[in-house]
Simulated assay, not measured.
Amino acid sequence: MADIVPADVRSRMMSGIRGTNTKPELLLRKGLHALGFRFRLHDRSLPGKPDIVLPRYRAVMFAHGCFWHGHDCHLFKMPSTRPEFWQAKIDRNRAVDARSEAALEEAGWRLAIIWECALKGKTRLPLENVISACANWLRSDRPRLEVRGR
């Protein structure tokens, strides 16, 4: 099936997709900040450049987009055009994620992954529940947290 827009338009559309300061990330930051948590953003010195870094809690948080990280939820659908390209790209993203997570854990960081489907779409959770789960995890000593939609 051919793409419905010309290649130059598709390229411009795709280049406009943000890697930082996404809506899910902003929701998390606003909620955590309102609860009194203070953090750094996108620390380039850490593997994977985590979205939110909380040094006081020795914790990092990633707000993963379900499409870009190939999540098994309703928000991910493999594109029908150039499936080999997209499969390779998503597989690369997953490999980078796995390496970054392993390096962070080895360095003693606790790790939280908040999936986009927990904050958006038909399986989303109430925002208060997601923020509460994150806050409870930060106050605990659990090494990992993963929040996904219902």
Rank of each mutant, 00 (worst) to 15 (best):
Leu75Asp: 02
Lys89Leu: 04
Tyr57Ile: 00
Ala102Pro: 00
Gln87Lys: 15
Arg10Cys: 00
Leu32Thr: 10
Cys117Glu: 11
Arg110Met: 03
Leu125Tyr: 03
Ala95Tyr: 00
Met61Thr: 10
Cys73Asn: 12
Ser100Glu: 02
Ala98Pro: 01
Arg150Pro: 05
Leu41Gln: 14
Ile131Asn: 05
Ala63Thr: 10
Ala98Leu: 13
Asn21Cys: 04
Gly149Trp: 08
Met13Ser: 08
Glu146Gln: 13
Glu84Lys: 11
Ala7Glu: 10
Leu41Ser: 12
His33Ile: 04
Lys120Asp: 03
Pro126Gln: 05
Leu125Asp: 04
Met1Val: 12
His74Thr: 15
Glu25Ala: 08
Ala103Phe: 00
Met14Leu: 13
Ala135Glu: 10
Arg82Gln: 13
Ala135Pro: 06
Lys49Gly: 00
Tyr57Glu: 07
Arg40Gln: 12
Leu32Tyr: 09
Ser100His: 15
Arg99Asn: 09
Asn136Thr: 06
Ala103Thr: 00
Val96Tyr: 03
Ala2Gln: 14
Thr123Lys: 15
Leu35Ile: 02
Cys134Asp: 01
Ala98Arg: 15
Cys66Pro: 12
Pro47Glu: 01
Asn93Gln: 09
Gly70Tyr: 12
Leu125Pro: 07
Pro143Phe: 00
Lys30Ile: 06
Arg29Gln: 12
Arg139Gln: 14
Leu104Arg: 02
Arg99Gly: 05
Arg94Val: 11
Arg12Ile: 01
Arg58Trp: 01
Asp51Tyr: 07
Ile114Gly: 06
Leu125Cys: 04
Ser132Phe: 01
Ile114Asn: 06
Arg142His: 14
Ala34Tyr: 02
Asp141Ser: 15
Ala133Thr: 07
His69Met: 13
Gly70Thr: 11
Ala88Val: 03
Ala135Val: 08
Asp8Trp: 11
Arg10Thr: 01
Ala112Pro: 08
Arg110Asp: 02
Ala95Pro: 00
Val130Gln: 07
Thr123Gln: 14
Trp115Met: 11
Pro143Trp: 01
Arg139Cys: 08
Met78Ile: 03
Leu27Trp: 07
Gly108Asn: 04
Leu125Ala: 02
Pro24Met: 11
Ile131Thr: 08
Leu35Asn: 09
Ala118Asp: 05
Leu119His: 03
Phe37Pro: 09
Tyr57Met: 08
Lys120Tyr: 09
Ser80Arg: 15
Pro6Ala: 15
Ala7Gln: 09
Glu116Tyr: 04
Ile4Pro: 00
Arg150Ile: 03
Glu101Tyr: 00
Ser100Tyr: 02
Leu75Gly: 05
Arg18Gly: 12
Arg44Gln: 12
Thr22Asn: 10
Val96Trp: 05
Leu138Gly: 10
Gly70Cys: 12
Ser15Thr: 08
Arg56Gln: 13
Arg92Met: 07
Arg56Ala: 15
Val147Tyr: 05
Ala59Tyr: 03
His74Ser: 15
Ser132Gln: 13
Asp43Pro: 00
Arg82Asp: 13
Thr22His: 09
Thr22Met: 09
Asp3Gly: 02
Pro24Arg: 11
Pro50Ser: 03
Ala135Cys: 11
